[in-house]
């Protein structure tokens, strides 16, 4: 089953907003792109390929996403940094209950103030996208599977 042109643009918009709130803020808006009951996992690719459950970020509700945001802003000591998400190759197919199963490639470039830009993470998203009460698309599930399994030091912001 193919999706409509309108829905395809809606999906593009969702991923653009996702990148924008993480890169330019406000970070507090990031959880709003998810359903209240949601799953957000950042998984090293070797774990994913071996079926090992460990994720380096695991949020099982919008509340846990907010807790992560709060910690980034209030408790984690980290150097200031800029991030840029590049999200490409978005492909979708119909899933159960009118949801969309979406895959996309991503890379995140990180700029620390005294370093040249570097690729912080590269991998793919495996997502389940549905419609919220207001009618707009949001993430019911988001799995970030990163190929760059040796992480350059620290991942502070969500991917």
């Amino acid at each position: 089953m193919t999706i409509s042109v309108e829905e395809r643009f809606e999906l593009e918009d969702l991923y653009s907003r996702y990148a924008t709130v993480l890169d330019d803020g406000p970070l507090e808006s990031w959880p709003e792109l998810f359903a209240e009951e949601c799953l957000y996992l950042v998984i090293p690719r070797d774990n994913y390929d071996q079926g090992l459950p460990l994720a380096i970020m695991r949020c099982e509700s919008r509340g846990m996403l907010s807790d992560r945001v709060h910690a980034v802003q209030e408790t984690i000591m980290h150097e200031p940094r800029y991030l840029r998400h590049q999200i490409t190759n978005i492909q979708s197919s119909a899933a159960a209950d009118g949801d969309l199963a979406v895959s996309a490639h991503y890379s995140v470039i990180e700029v620390l103030h005294d370093e040249l830009p570097k690729i912080l993470s590269v991998g793919r998203y495996l997502d389940l996208v549905g419609r919220g009460a207001g009618g707009s698309l949001h993430f019911k599930e988001k799995r970030v599977i990163y190929d760059s399994v040796l992480v350059p030091n620290t991942i502070v912001y969500p991917l």
């Binding site: 994720a55 380096i56 408790t75 000591m77």
Partner: peptide, 17 residues
Amino acid sequence: ANLMSSAGLVSADDSEV
């Protein structure tokens, strides 16, 4: 495990410092 490793709510402090 959210507290630990490269994106850990606690151990990110350590790798940064």
